[in-house]
Amino acid sequence: MADMESEARPVLVPGGNKTRPVKPVPSKPISKPSNPQMVKSKEPTITKSPSPILDPRSIIKKKEASLHRNLSLDASCSSDASSDSSCSRPSSTSTSRSRRTVVTRPKKEVGNEGKVEKEMVSAASQDFIEGKRRCSWVTANAEPCYIAFHDEEWGAPLHDDRKLFELLVLSGALAELTWPVILSKRHIFREVFMDFDPVSVSKLNEKKLVAPGSPARSLLSEAKLRAVIENSKQILKIINEFGSFDRYIWGFVNHKQIVSRFRYPRQVPIKTSKAETISKDMVRRGLRCVGPTVIYTFMQVTGLTNDHLVSCFCFEKCVSAASTCSDANKEEKPAEQGKRTSVEELTRGVDVISV
């Protein structure tokens, strides 16, 4: 039994049995390699060569290159994956684009000729209000008070001192307000300024007029309100010197209406040399807020100049009114003429300026 056990026992010396027990190898954590191509096959018994592993980024690059080649065939096609369906009809797309370009392309104007043609087209397409053609700045959407003001007062010769003083004040208010707003508050102007009687206005108390609770503060600024009272005092001096404010103001145009034959709105000026002359004389006499622009607006509205467009129906009406005033003044007695002694002042007419 001892011999049998000795034979079965393995000898671990170098000259003994070579069959040695295999020692267990401690397991190590397997780390994934950063590059998939560096992975080697763990099956050495396989003699077949392993197939090469493709990089996913290279596959994506190839697909992008193929898409780019497909998209470069037609620049008008879409850039998404369904570009084949859009590229199947390039002729229709190019045709529609060319048609849109031709329709929406604006026409170029060459110099002043293009401006004149444009203004002629706008004048031809001007809307008629109640069957009458008016100046182009009076549209069908304008306020009724503004349309009535254009038809009845603007450009008509005026010779009443109160009316002249009123329109001088309203022309100065145009620097802060517009004509529709001024005309809508005209009844407040007349109530505050005593129907524009220069004598009554000159007696107004400035402190009460410019007080915060005064209704006049809703009309004009404090400087404008003070200028109205000061101008009324200076107009009284002019009346004492010339007999009337009408005679003074019409004397600058030799008591003749200036008729301007303007065809387009761009020809109407904002001031003239005559307006500058009147403005300088008024400033010299102590009047305030009477610049050349204000004075020319005053000349337009009081009929010293007829700036209605020749296409407006009020143009001929204002010319006829000026002729009527001229005929009436010819019958005036020399004793009532005051300081107007020259032959030209005795025969009022109409000066026509062609533009």
Rank of each mutant, 00 (worst) to 15 (best):
K256I: 01
F252D: 03
K233H: 06
V259R: 07
K271I: 02
L309Y: 07
I270H: 14
S260F: 12
V283D: 09
K224R: 14
E222D: 11
I229K: 07
V310S: 11
P292E: 13
S273D: 14
T302A: 09
S232Y: 03
F245A: 01
V228K: 01
R261C: 13
H255K: 05
H308E: 10
V294P: 01
V259Y: 04
K256Y: 04
L225K: 01
S260W: 13
T302C: 13
V268K: 15
L236A: 05
V283E: 14
T272P: 08
T297R: 12
I258P: 00
R263I: 10
K280A: 15
L225V: 08
V228A: 04
Q234W: 01
F262P: 02
Y296S: 04
P292G: 11
T305H: 10
R263Y: 12
K237D: 03
R226L: 10
K274P: 02
M282W: 01
K233N: 03
V268E: 09
Q300L: 11
R285W: 01
T293L: 05
S279A: 11
Q267P: 06
I229T: 13
R261D: 07
V310C: 10
E241F: 05
P269I: 03
T297L: 10
Y296E: 08
E222T: 12
Y296V: 02
R263E: 14
F245G: 01
V310P: 07
G291F: 02
K237V: 02
D307N: 14
G303D: 12
E276Q: 12
C312S: 14
L309F: 09
G251P: 04
E222S: 10
V228P: 03
M282I: 00
Q300K: 11
K237P: 00
A227C: 11
H255A: 06
L225W: 02
L236C: 08
F245R: 00
S311I: 06
V259F: 05
K224C: 09
P265E: 15
H308P: 09
R226W: 06
R261M: 14
N306E: 10
D307C: 12
T277K: 14
F252M: 05
D246A: 12
F298K: 00
S311V: 07
I235E: 00
D307I: 08
D246K: 11
D281C: 05
G303R: 10
S273P: 06
N306M: 11
I238Y: 03
Y264P: 01
T297K: 08
K274A: 15
P269G: 07
H255R: 12
T297I: 06
H308D: 10
C289M: 15
W250K: 04
K233R: 13
I278M: 15
K280N: 15
I249F: 13
L309N: 06
T277W: 01
S311F: 08
L236T: 03
E222R: 12
V283M: 10
V301E: 01
Y296H: 14
K233D: 00
I270E: 15
Q257D: 06
G251K: 05
